[in-house]
């Protein structure tokens, strides 16, 4: 495909999906290989407009940070597996965006995994839930108690007290203690 053909195909996709002008311009500003790779991904995974907008931003940022091209990012094994894989397109599209996010925020992803594992290790009874702050944007832990009787309430407090050390460990992790950079 020539550069003109790629630009034409991108414009057609944008028109069919009502993509806004700013994101269309962002897409067209990519080098031709990259623009074509994004188009290929959008077609294979049947990306929704919101997914494409998010993916474009993350792809550009990953490429900038790693001093490479968007097409090179899209050629990486984890993304290629998703792009060339089988299964329903919506599920693959979600996996694609998740994978991009993991690439864009590698240390955040690692920290989240570690903390989610700590939450699972608490083995909380059904009446208790521990919620991590969105994207670890703060150091505040949300602890939810759902009970229907005084007995359940007392039980939940006892269960929580038994897990105090584990909860403190999560709070320490949220505050950056033992965080490996």
């Amino acid at each position: 495909m020539s550069d003109d053909d790629i630009a034409k195909a991108v414009r057609t996709w944008a028109e069919q999906h009502h993509l806004d002008r700013a994101h269309l311009e962002q897409w067209l500003a990519l080098d031709a290989d990259s623009a074509a790779s994004v188009l290929d991904a959008a077609s294979r995974l049947r990306l929704r407009v919101g997914q494409l907008q998010g993916a474009l931003g993350m792809l550009e940022e990953i490429a900038l940070v790693e001093r490479t091209q968007v097409s090179a990012v899209l050629a990486r094994a984890p993304l290629k597996r998703i792009l060339e894989g089988v299964g329903p397109a919506p599920a693959r599209a979600r996996a694609f965006v998740d994978e991009l996010r993991a690439m864009r925020f590698p240390r955040l992803g690692h920290a989240l995994e570690q903390m989610k594992a700590e939450v699972v290790a608490l083995k909380l009874p059904r009446m208790l839930a521990v919620g991590l702050p969105k994207d670890l944007g703060s150091d505040e832990l949300r602890i939810e108690i759902r009970v229907r009787s005084g007995t359940e309430f007392r039980e939940s407090l006892r269960a929580l007290a038994e897990r105090a050390e584990g909860v403190e460990r999560i709070l320490d992790l949220l505050g950056g203690k033992n965080f490996s950079q």
Partner: peptide, 19 residues
């Protein structure tokens, strides 16, 4: 790796920043 913090600003996610 900045995320939207409760104060409405983008900041490095908390454990990394605090550490």
């Amino acid at each position: 790796e900045e995320v939207l913090a409760p104060d409405g600003r983008y900041r490095t996610f908390t454990p990394l920043r605090a550490s």
